[in-house]
Design a protein around this nucleic acid. Sequence first.
DNA 1: ATATTAATTAGACTTTGTCTAATTAATAGG
DNA 2: CCTATTAATTAGACAAAGTCTAATTAATAT
Lengths: 142, 142
Amino acid sequence: MDNKQRQWPLDRRAVIKLLGDCGIQATQQRIDIAQILFHQPQHLSADQILKTVNESRPSVSKATVYNTLGLFADKGLVRQVIVDPSRVFYDSNTSEHHHLYDIDHGTLTDIAPEQLTVSGMPALPDGMVTEGIDVIIRVRSE
Amino acid sequence: MDNKQRQWPLDRRAVIKLLGDCGIQATQQRIDIAQILFHQPQHLSADQILKTVNESRPSVSKATVYNTLGLFADKGLVRQVIVDPSRVFYDSNTSEHHHLYDIDHGTLTDIAPEQLTVSGMPALPDGMVTEGIDVIIRVRSE
DNA sequence: ATATTAATTAGACTTTGTCTAATTAATAGG
DNA sequence: CCTATTAATTAGACAAAGTCTAATTAATAT
């Protein structure tokens, strides 16, 4: 579901529609979280989202943040990015692209698919279904 | 250091030499851990190594396992593989290759570099030094 | 309105990994 | 070989990310 281009930033209305289109009940908490994520294409950790969403006043619990991010990832609304052993990033941009990860600063940057090509997908054993291909360039920048 | 082909399995003598060549003091604990890793090209988590090394009788502490794996990774003897949010794998094969990760079973398999080509390395911002490029094919196999 | 189902929550819990301060082992020099 | 010095190991406390549970609250449908 939903790996199309988006029009940034998504406002409240657009977010509600997006959730609806994916069969996700648009509760207040989910809308809040989605609005943070879909403000722009970005990479946020669960902890960053938890902090941001409760900035003005506490409104969403830790459990719900994790539940919601898991749900969004399942539905294909966001993409998990696993580059840092200590936390998962959630990428609000689900159109095809690669990543550059700065080990020293813990920051993620997008690499456009035109800039880097992966060719020659090997045949998979029976019963295996490709879920995705991750290409990560790891850099140091001290 | 040391991303060359190895001759599997490495016996005790070969392991001691390998450590020496990398400027690592060959203590009993490090030899034990290295022997497990370099028995064959494989992907092991810290926890798996801790269990294996203490199988017959307790001989290496948790702290030392983590210290040692960190040291081996720094020296380029093993390669960290970050594909699973819950644990880091250490790959005893440091020659160039890619990975296939089975999400449902949590298992890693190698993909030979000939089978999959990455072309068009983008120019990096000033001061950034490439540490490595990871290509991971994620599959489900329920 | 009300029954039923779905979502949220606090807080306990698990797991991976880190840190510290103290002990033990290894090395170098005489 | 003994001894000083340095390096490695250790137990156990700790930290942080994420999960789980059982109870509450909100949403939906009838």
